[in-house]
């Protein structure tokens, strides 16, 4: 069991791996649930979440956003996140899938 580690690995459908802070990653309810130690799914055992439907480009952007959210969680007058317009649709779908506040991008 690796639930007490600080970092988790997110893996994109096309095989890119991102090691990010667990606390940041858990903004997504889907990721959070998959890592829940009381449930003991495989993700929790391996400390690694494979997100098959999300490609590396999008996942990178998502990780950026997760950190962005973590950084500004408690502050006001937050600068807008950097979102390339061509990725917006895919990001929205991913946000819906991950069930987090990413949905508030739009």
């Amino acid at each position: 069991m690796a639930s007490d580690t600080k970092y988790v690995t997110l893996v994109s459908g096309d095989g890119y791996e991102f090691k990010i802070l667990r606390s940041a990653a858990c903004l997504s309810k889907t990721i959070k649930n998959s890592l829940d130690p009381t449930y003991g799914f495989r993700e929790n055992e391996e400390n690694r979440v494979v997100l098959k439907d999300i490609n590396g480009v999008i996942l990178e952007k998502i990780c950026e956003y997760l950190y962005y959210n973590e950084k500004y969680a408690d502050s006001k007058d937050v600068p807008d996140p950097d979102l390339p317009p061509e990725l917006c649709l895919e990001l929205l779908i991913a946000a819906d899938y991950l069930d987090g506040e990413l949905a508030s991008f739009g």
Binding site: T30, N33, S34, Y39, G40, F41, R42, E43, N44, E45, V49, V50, L51, K52, D53, Y97
Partner: peptide, 15 residues
């Protein structure tokens, strides 16, 4: 016996 299962996979099916 949940440890053999991937949450993400099941979630994705239901999704």
């Amino acid at each position: 016996n949940a440890s053999r299962l991937s949450y993400e996979e099941l979630y994705r099916h239901a999704y």
